[in-house]
């Protein structure tokens, strides 16, 4: 009986402390100190929420930069994050990659296979990867210039301005956030 009292007592006591007080207090503190981040890093345009800063979005229009392939259904669905889980010797994996390469070659004037980074044709771990490498952005410029009439030089400047360097010079690789890039393009198209 004494054991039973201890089992229930310690379980309930710790539940109140780390099951309820900890998450609720951390939420309260975060809401006060970091309200922007804690509420999903909302990116606003004309007062409306157009993106959550770290979550990628699906773009397949020629006038916008494209992100990495996404394995979620529909693509870039944050309610169903998932990788493709395709193994390295799965026929489907190679088919998907080749189809993606073919699409990029068909839609981008002058693009060659050996300019395409692997990450641009291989799907991400979450299906929500917001970033692409700088090279992946640069190779899309001819397509976007053709579709929008924006000068290639302007687009190249936008890419350069949006390069995110490694944090503290150490962590991660240089990359660009696709949603950020496209917001810049959107603003040029809708002055």
């Amino acid at each position: 009986m004494k054991v039973l009292r201890a089992v229930i007592g310690v379980s309930v006591g710790l539940w109140v402390l780390v099951g309820l007080a900890y998450p609720l207090a951390m939420t309260g503190i975060s809401q006060v100190i970091f309200p922007y981040q804690a509420n999903g890093s909302q990116v606003k345009l004309n007062g409306k929420v157009v993106a959550s800063a770290h979550v990628g979005q699906y773009f397949d229009q020629s006038q916008y930069f494209w992100g990495r392939p996404s394995a979620t259904s529909p693509p870039y669905n944050p309610e169903a994050s998932s990788p493709s889980n395709l193994g390295p010797t799965n026929k489907l994996l190679i088919q998907h990659i080749k189809a993606r390469v073919a699409l990029l070659l068909k839609t981008t004037p002058g693009l060659k296979v050996n300019q395409i980074p692997a990450s641009m044709v291989e799907s991400s771990g979450s299906g929500l990867d917001p970033d692409i490498t700088v090279q992946s952005a640069l190779i899309q410029i001819p397509r976007i210039a053709k579709a929008t009439g924006i000068q290639s030089a302007t687009l190249r400047r936008i890419v350069t301005q949006h390069i995110v360097r490694p944090q503290l010079g150490i962590f991660g690789r240089s990359h660009v956030n696709v949603v950020d890039l496209n917001l810049a393009v959107f603003k040029l198209l809708h002055p």
Binding site: P83, S119, E122, S123, S124, G125
Partner: peptide, 14 residues
């Protein structure tokens, strides 16, 4: 014959 060789299937750019 792509531009880079690293296996990025299921990995995140950042």
């Amino acid at each position: 014959g792509l531009h880079t060789h690293a296996n990025m299937v299921g990995k995140e750019t950042r």
